[in-house]
Simulated scan of single mutants.
Amino acid sequence: MLEHHRLANITVGMVTEQAELNRGRFYYHFKSMDDLADRVIEDEALGNGSVLQNMLSLVAGSSTANGFEAFIKHDMERIGYVK
């Protein structure tokens, strides 16, 4: 959704419609759209397979050639560095 809308313009209704869930399920997991945004940022920064984790693996030399290719193709596009 963030590829097509500004965060400030994304509503709970839009999220639940896209996820094919009801509002009750959304509010079971999140207090608000800000809470969801915080979770997404946290997952992107620190989660398994996050850009940061992949970069640290590359620097530490623990990444394989496939990991490097995945980083270039996927993570660099995700952070808007390359297209």
Rank of each mutant, 00 (worst) to 15 (best):
N22Y: 11
D38H: 02
E44R: 08
G13M: 05
Q18G: 08
V12L: 09
G13T: 09
E17S: 12
N9D: 15
V51T: 13
H5K: 13
K73V: 14
M33T: 09
L21R: 13
G61P: 07
H4W: 00
H29I: 00
G49L: 01
G49I: 04
N48G: 05
D43Y: 06
H4C: 12
N54F: 01
Y28M: 10
A65H: 05
E42R: 13
F71N: 03
F71L: 08
E20I: 02
E42I: 10
M1V: 07
D34V: 10
F71R: 00
R25F: 06
E20L: 10
D75I: 03
E17K: 14
V82M: 00
I79E: 12
N48C: 03
D43W: 03
A45R: 12
K83E: 13
I10M: 02
R39Q: 11
F30W: 10
I72Q: 13
G13I: 09
K31Q: 13
I10W: 01
I79Y: 06
A60K: 13
K31S: 12
T64K: 09
D38K: 08
G49M: 01
L2P: 02
L46C: 13
E17D: 15
L21F: 10
Q53L: 07
A19T: 10
D43V: 02
E77P: 13
D35F: 03
A60I: 00
D75K: 04
L52H: 06
N9K: 06
N22H: 10
F71K: 04
A60T: 12
L58H: 02
K73L: 11
L58V: 12
A19K: 13
A8G: 04
S63H: 00
E20D: 14
E42C: 11
V12G: 06
F26H: 07
S62Y: 03
L56H: 09
